[in-house]
Design a protein around this nucleic acid. Sequence first.
DNA 1: CACAGTAATTAGCTTAACTAATAAGCCCGG
DNA 2: CCGGGCTTATTAGTTAAGCTAATTACTGTG
Lengths: 144, 144
Amino acid sequence: MTAKRVSVAQLASSLRDAITRFNRRVRQTRPVGDLTVTQLSALTSLQLAGALSPRELADVERVQPPTMTKIVAKLEERGLVQRTPHPTDGRQVILAATAEGRAILAQHERARDEWLAPRLAALTPEERDTLRRAAEILQKVARA
Amino acid sequence: MTAKRVSVAQLASSLRDAITRFNRRVRQTRPVGDLTVTQLSALTSLQLAGALSPRELADVERVQPPTMTKIVAKLEERGLVQRTPHPTDGRQVILAATAEGRAILAQHERARDEWLAPRLAALTPEERDTLRRAAEILQKVARA
DNA sequence: CACAGTAATTAGCTTAACTAATAAGCCCGG
DNA sequence: CCGGGCTTATTAGTTAAGCTAATTACTGTG
């Protein structure tokens, strides 16, 4: 398992292709419990942080504030997120997962990523380790 | 750099999160040369294969046939793809990149993935190797 | 206290995907 | 030899996800 030398341009191309197709495949699976991947990701980040303003959540999720407004609106409709005014700053809003939102997340934890998990389980431990490290690197690149 | 043991469920979750954010970041970049990421990917697959029917191309790209119809329509509008009838099967259509389409691809090869490449160049060789192997694994998983 | 900056939302647009339905053509079995 | 069932492609219509630009509301500072 030695490092094969590959140009950065080739890597960029094959990585982007792989991720595009992988992502399409994941999105093809019916959203579990009526939550889309986007909504689930936002709700998860929110619960991890405890509470965030829309702007902060948008930054974490790497979307623009108006996009987050829509995502939050849908989560609020379903009663999974609560919007409370900021105690001192009248412009801001504080977002937090409701009890129902946390229940949905817990439910997802049990049957996490139904499509993906069995496929990962079919890989070798080395392959899974590669993916684990790749996930960290991708987070870093996306953050940059 | 030993393998850290991580549950499949945790890996599924963090991998999906990383890829979701990474993908958003890539798509935020303005389409190079008027081709979106989706269109570029389809055109590349088409040239790699030489010629394909819409159905075959949809399978390669992991989208549904109607989605491919739209992607191809846009590529045809720009004169990058040609549609010819199948010699024996009147239902089918044969898609192929035009000379102009191949020229655009060659142009992209030179300045491939303008956003991504410099960021990959900033990584260590080991990190790039991890991503290279991860790309293969992701392709395999997406194909399964 | 006016005004410059920040937070959130609204409005309007684009891309990307889906499902369901339709049209057209192939092919096999009686 | 032809009628019904499958396959291919497209059309129609919807939804989600993202963007930018503009608007509203509020803060805080000179």
